[in-house]
């Protein structure tokens, strides 16, 4: 008897049915359509689109990326065409694909998060992910993600404005990740995703200037993986809602580590820049791993690390 992909890899996270547990991390996969020549979008667990705001944003000035050991810094600054353009132009084109679309949203105020959630409460959006962890914008973003009370306020506002599942993306730039996770769970989060990027900096020793135009930026890539695995492990034990693990996943082995730490699904981020079919390759590799281990379903891995 042969077991099909969805039979082995299919998961449902906060009511969002996915063919594989491998999603794409916001900001690393555009709106999905940019990748259609390279990867079969129908084979991705879910596409989490670029952080979307009420009004268009042009992002940060100057150089926006810098390569670092086993990683990269970015300071894009939430450049995006705004929610109206997303709803009128981009979302209709995503309908051609059989993949859940999760919209990452970011606001300057609690009310803006609520308004965004209300606007996106439409049939073709599978869920929203609250970006309370962007390190690259002055207002909003991480300001909400480093304080339990404001994070909680954002989640409550969004929950009262949408029927969709609400995923909250946490920042690793906090003292107590578990406290943050518990706050957003108590506020009604349906799932928690982590980690967003770690705040970092790179200096050009020839020019004595920061490499990034924005001086500091978010560190991602394999370099952050052990931190992400640790935080997923800590959070998964402390909350009942599903955890989506991300941070430096390049290979299936990386993804499996996150699942063993307690993630019910994972997201591929920086790896999309290196290999545009990374999300699909990771899922394929997970299936092979399950077969080799004689396992029937990916959920058999979740939180199974023996301490």
């Amino acid at each position: 008897m042969s077991i099909g992909d969805s039979d082995m890899l299919g998961v449902t996270i906060a009511g969002i049915k996915m063919k594989t547990p491998v999603m794409t991390a916001s900001g690393t996969f555009g709106f999905g359509l940019e990748y259609k020549d390279f990867v079969n979008l129908n084979k991705i667990g879910a596409v989490v689109v670029k952080g979307t705001t009420l009004l268009p944003r042009s992002g940060n000035q100057g150089r926006r990326i810098a390569e670092t050991p086993a990683g990269m810094l970015n300071s894009i600054g939430l450049e995006n065409p705004g929610v109206d353009e997303f709803l009128s132009t981009i979302l209709p084109r995503l309908k051609d694909y059989d993949v859940p679309v999760i919209v990452n949203i970011s606001g300057n105020t609690v009310e803006e998060y609520g308004e965004l959630a209300a606007r996106l409460n439409v049939a073709d959006v599978a869920g929203v992910e609250l970006n309370i962890s962007c390190p690259n914008v002055k207002e909003g973003g991480i300001a909400f993600g480093t304080n339990c009370d404001s994070a909680s306020a954002v989640v409550k506002q969004v929950k009262s404005n949408t029927d969709l599942p609400v995923i909250v993306k946490l920042s690793p730039n906090v003292t107590d990740i578990v406290a943050m996770a518990q706050s957003v769970e108590d506020a009604g989060a349906d799932a928690i995703s982590l980690i967003n990027t770690l705040l970092g900096m790179s200096i050009d020793i020839h020019k004595w200037r920061p490499v990034l135009g924005n001086v500091v930026g978010g560190l991602s890539g394999p370099a952050v993986k052990p931190i992400a695995v640790r935080m997923v492990w800590q959070v998964a034990q402390s909350v009942k809602v599903p955890v989506i693990g991300m941070g430096g996943i390049v290979t299936a082995e990386d993804a499996i580590e996150f699942m063993l730490a307690g993630a019910s699904a994972v997201a591929v981020g920086t790896a999309n820049f290196i290999n545009p079919c990374a999300a699909q390759s990771v899922a394929d590799g997970m299936k092979n791993y399950l077969r080799q281990r004689g396992l029937f379903h990916v959920s058999e891995l979740v939180g199974k690390v023996n301490i």
Binding site: T28, E34, F38, G59, T270, N272, P276
Partner: peptide
């Protein structure tokens, strides 16, 4: 400077 080269990273 670019990462993805295909319009995804901005």
């Amino acid at each position: 400077y670019m990462a993805c080269g295909i319009g995804g990273c901005l």
